[in-house]
């Protein structure tokens, strides 16, 4: 079993074969994981919607619509029960997080009151900024049942009504920014037409 010689033909053939086999294998894996990946992402969205809205019996994710705002898109998920509107979940974002983008799901009641807020994605510091996750601290509880009409979505340091997470003013500010973005879009006729 002599080693294969390093001439041009052999080298090209080897690389070609390896790359082809690798691409074929990956294509296969990609095909078979495509649906589970999409399903996992969808499940995450659906769970977030369920977590932030009162009980509903429609399929908010199939009635979703997109609203363009400054710097990106918000997705609105209208929920109803027995044909009666019970609220809207808004998938919102901010790019001002301590570690970049944060994505939230904010549930609004029909009158604009915040029902609950869930975090979809963030990269904030563990132990500090990640306290925005409802299971890690009760930071997000202070928003529940508040109407941004009267409840100023700014941290107290900036003259608002929100108690910031200790030592995480930047994350808290970003959180408020995302919630405010959702509320403003909702108010400016984020209604379905």
């Amino acid at each position: 079993m002599a080693k294969v010689e390093s001439n041009f033909k052999n080298m090209t053939a080897t690389l070609l074969i390896i790359t082809l086999v690798a691409s074929a294998a990956l294509g296969l894996v990609y095909q078979s994981t495509k649906d589970p990946i999409a399903a996992a992402q969808q499940a995450k969205i659906n769970n977030a919607i369920k977590a932030v809205l009162p009980e509903f019996d429609n399929q908010p994710s199939s009635e979703a619509y997109v609203v363009k705002v400054d710097g990106g898109e918000l997705t609105f998920y209208p929920a109803s029960k027995g044909g009666q509107m019970v609220g809207t979940a808004v998938k919102t974002f901010t790019n001002n997080g301590f570690a970049g983008r944060i994505e939230l799901m904010v549930g609004f009641l029909p009158d604009g009151t915040i029902n609950k807020i869930a975090v979809i994605a963030h990269k904030e510091t563990p132990g500090l900024g990640d306290k925005m996750e409802p299971k890690k601290s009760n930071f997000s509880v202070q928003f529940e049942g508040k109407n941004p009409e009267t409840f100023k979505l700014k941290v107290k340091k900036d003259g608002g009504d929100v108690d910031a997470i200790t030592a995480s003013t930047i994350s808290s500010r970003a959180y408020c920014d995302a919630v405010a973005r959702a509320y403003n879009a909702l108010k400016e006729g984020g209604k379905h037409e």
Binding site: V4, S6, N7, M11, T14, L15, I18, T19, A22, A25
Partner: peptide
Amino acid sequence: IARFIPDKVRIPSYIVVIATFVTI
């Protein structure tokens, strides 16, 4: 596959194999 690979393209070939598993 090591013994079928010419010496000079050893490293690129290994990298492709590794990258494939990483992507999986």
